[in-house]
Structure formats: C-alpha cells, structure tokens
C-alpha cells in the first residue's frame, strides 16, 4: 500500500519521468543486446566488430538514471531537463553511428560500407529513444509540482 501511495498525488512530470525511466531501461537493454549481437564488415570485408557504440550506450544509461531524479524529486526544476539532454545526445550520436546504414538502406545497397545490421531493429531503437525524449520534453514543460486544486481533491 505504501508503494501505491507513493504513486498517488504526484505531478505529471513524475509519471512522465517514471515512464521515460522504465522505457530508458528497455531501450538500453534492447540497444545493448542488439548492437552486441550483430557483427559488421566493411563492404562485407574487413571486420568492424559489433555495432556497439560506447557513447550511445553511456548517454542512454545516464539518461535513464537521470530520469530517476525526476521521479525522486519531481519538484526539482532541472530534473527532466537532464535526461532530455542525455537522451537527445544518445539520439544524435546514434544518428552519426547509423548514418551510413541509413544511406545504404535508402540507396538499396546496404552491405557496401557496412553489414550485419538490421534496419528494422535500428529504427525501433530510434523510436524508443524518441518516445523517451518526448516524455521528458513534455515533463520539461511542466513545473513539477502538483496543482493545489488537484492536491486537495
């Protein structure tokens, strides 16, 4: 019951950060599992190892952890801003990381400069990241406090 009470009467940013936090964990796990499991080659030739990118992983992980601030202290005004920037950084550097793949998929030549990836999964990771980002962006537009009227009701 105490746990349930914990979720009661919380501001919107609390729920958004909580959702982003959970989704961040999922995204980090999906990203890590996927990128470690696929092995690429340059033009099908020279091994380029797996598709794991440490910067993307760290940003995702930190973003997820930072969401906990918004959960624990929703009234801290900077709380949703930190994860939004960290998730955005993960998103941006994932674009950098996957740019060749996207280009080759568009031009139907995937496998020339890189191989091994699954475009659908990569797009799924992008969507997960975006959902996390949108959640904390929306949270950023709230002041992190429960309105009095709601609190009394």
């Amino acid at each position: 019951m105490k746990i349930l009470n914990f979720f009661k009467n919380k501001p919107l940013s609390f729920y958004l950060c909580l959702g982003a936090c959970v989704l961040g964990v999922v995204t980090t796990i999906v990203y890590t599992a996927y990128s470690l499991s696929v092995y690429g080659k340059i033009n099908g030739g020279a091994d380029m190892g797996n598709h794991f990118n440490t910067v993307v992983f760290v940003m995702l992980l930190l973003g997820t952890l930072a969401c906990a601030i918004g959960v624990a202290k929703p009234d801290w005004q900077f709380a949703p801003l930190i994860p939004s920037l960290l998730f955005s950084a993960a998103f941006g550097y994932y674009i950098d990381d996957r740019l060749i793949m996207i280009e080759e998929e568009i031009n139907q030549i995937y496998g020339m400069m890189e191989s091994g990836g699954n475009f659908g999964t990569v797009m799924f990771v992008f969507v997960l990241m975006l959902v996390c980002i949108v959640a904390v962006i929306v949270a950023s537009f709230t002041d992190g406090t429960k309105k009095q009227r709601n609190a009394n009701s």
């Binding site: 801003l81 939004s84 955005s88 998103f91 941006g92 674009i95 950098d96 980002i133």
Partner: peptide, 10 residues
C-alpha cells in the same frame, strides 16, 4: 537540445 544533438550527430 534534441534539435541540437540531432543536427550535431548528423
């Protein structure tokens, strides 16, 4: 921030 990191990553 999202816009900046997207543009920057790109």
């Amino acid at each position: 921030g999202l816009l900046f990191f997207t543009v920057n990553g790109l």
